[in-house]
């Protein structure tokens, strides 16, 4: 049984929307239908409706590209300066990586594509970190809420472990990507540690950490505060306990858990 005509027409529409070579489309608007092996009458129907079909191309591409422009303004500024933004976006569309029907998943799909293909990273070694940092606050702001079933308390004790809020992320970069801006999109190469969290009011926040504090926050999720501090050579625990109380107060830490 031959493949469904309906499916081949839908594939031709997808190709018309996503494929990059507009010159090819201009030369023969029936090309996407021809490539699907459709009958000449269907190919001709593509040729006969060029303005309307190009409207679909424009509308759908706008839906796919706008979330990237909104989420990655600094990356866009960097690549536009090098006349490479459109090429980057087209390479992403060519890879057919938008699988989810949620708009909010388009930007993470782009980040995943950057990570797996390493697109542009020979020229801009910080590119993936920059994109990650731009997406980070969005992900933290929208991370699904959960209720903490475990028994936790607000004031840390040395034998406790830390329970971060589900949205909280401790991240390490090789570049100070959080200081990049649209006006100055190239970050300084320096080890950078950040805490991304959602406040009790639901607003995203970003805090710079030292390497030791970042390591402590991660380690103290599985070991006690005392063990973690000892392992990292942190001897002055007063400021550290003060920081932990602050992080609980702002909403980055859900609470502290005594050993079972």
């Amino acid at each position: 049984m031959s493949e469904s005509r309906t499916l081949r027409l839908q594939r031709a529409m997808a190709s018309l929307i996503l494929d990059g070579d507009e010159n090819l489309l201009e030369a023969d608007p029936g090309f996407p239908a021809q490539m699907q092996g459709l009958a000449e009458a269907d190919v001709q129907s593509f040729r006969d409706q060029v303005p309307a079909l190009m409207t679909y191309r424009e509308l759908a591409r706008m839906s796919l590209i706008e979330p990237l422009e909104d989420t990655f303004p600094i990356l866009r500024a960097l690549l536009e300066e090098a006349d490479a933004w459109d090429g980057c976006v087209q390479a992403f569309l060519d890879a057919r990586r938008v699988k989810s029907s949620h708009y909010r998943d388009i930007a993470p799909a782009f980040l995943g594509w950057l990570a797996t293909t390493q697109w542009g990273q020979d020229r801009w070694p910080f590119l993936l970190e920059l994109a990650h940092a731009e997406l980070l606050e969005v992900l933290v702001a929208h991370f699904p809420d959960t209720t903490t079933a475990e028994e936790i308390h607000a004031d840390p004790e040395l034998e406790d472990r830390i329970l971060l809020e589900v949205a909280t992320q401790v991240v390490a970069y090789r570049h100070a990507v959080h200081k990049a801006s649209e006006a100055s999109p190239i970050p300084v190469a320096t080890p950078t540690y950040l805490l991304a969290y959602r406040s009790r009011e639901g607003e995203p926040g970003l805090m710079e950490l030292t390497q030791a504090t970042a390591a402590f926050l991660v380690m103290a999720g599985t070991q006690t505060l005392a063990e973690s501090a000892r392992a990292l050579g942190l001897t002055d625990l007063g400021p550290l306990m003060h920081l932990l109380r602050d992080l609980h107060r702002v909403g980055a830490i859900a609470g502290f858990q005594a050993p079972i």
Binding site: R96, V98, S101, I106
Partner: peptide, 13 residues
């Protein structure tokens, strides 16, 4: 189409 979401309401033939 083929597990790629086009994020546009497209007409069925």
């Amino acid at each position: 189409v083929d597990d790629n979401c086009l994020h546009e309401l497209l007409p069925i033939p």
